[in-house]
């Protein structure tokens, strides 16, 4: 079941669109914000409110890079793997993160603290290499800087 909070946030989107189906991406983002990821049960809950099947929702969820159908860590590291960051040494930064956290790209640390995901260009190319951790953008990455940044997220 959707929590009252999830339901209220989703319903606040209804007036912005002419039908409930159009709200489904917002709805999935809202539920993911509260639960971390979109389980089958989460899709059932959303589908019930929006009048959609969970299969339809799954089709939409799997299309979008920022909707997760598998569990992720408490913090998600989004590391840019596009061209400007690649030129500026993005691969070395990725190797450093993987080594430090003991995971490969796409994996979650054993303690559930971090998931590392490669993402496309984050639009801060004059400060490449760039990553986001959750909602925050971090620029001009170096191994030392990455170590300091990751310390901030428990």
């Amino acid at each position: 079941m959707l929590t009252p909070e999830e339901r209220t946030e989703i319903e606040a989107e209804f007036p912005h669109y002419p039908n409930r189906k159009a709200v489904c991406i917002d709805a999935m983002k809202i539920v993911q914000k509260h639960r971390g990821w979109l389980s089958d049960e989460a899709l059932d809950d959303i589908g019930e409110l929006l009048g959609m099947s969970s299969t339809d929702l799954d089709g939409v969820a799997t299309f979008y890079n920022l909707l997760f159908r598998r569990p992720v860590g408490r913090h998600v590291i989004y590391l840019c793997d596009s061209v400007s960051c690649w030129i500026m040494g993005g691969d070395q930064q990725r190797n450093h993160i993987c080594k430090r956290l003991g995971i490969a790209s796409g994996e979650t640390t054993a303690d559930g603290r971090f998931t590392l995901l490669p993402v496309v260009c984050l639009g801060a190319c004059d400060h490449a290499p760039v990553m986001m951790v959750d909602q925050d953008t971090h620029r001009d990455l170096t191994p030392e800087k990455i170590d300091q940044i990751l310390e901030q997220y428990d």
């Binding site: 596009s82 260009c121 639009g123 801060a124």
Partner: peptide, 11 residues
């Protein structure tokens, strides 16, 4: 939806 790699002007 500024996602063209190398593009950061709309930001």
């Amino acid at each position: 939806d500024e996602m063209e790699p190398g593009t950061f002007k709309d930001r």
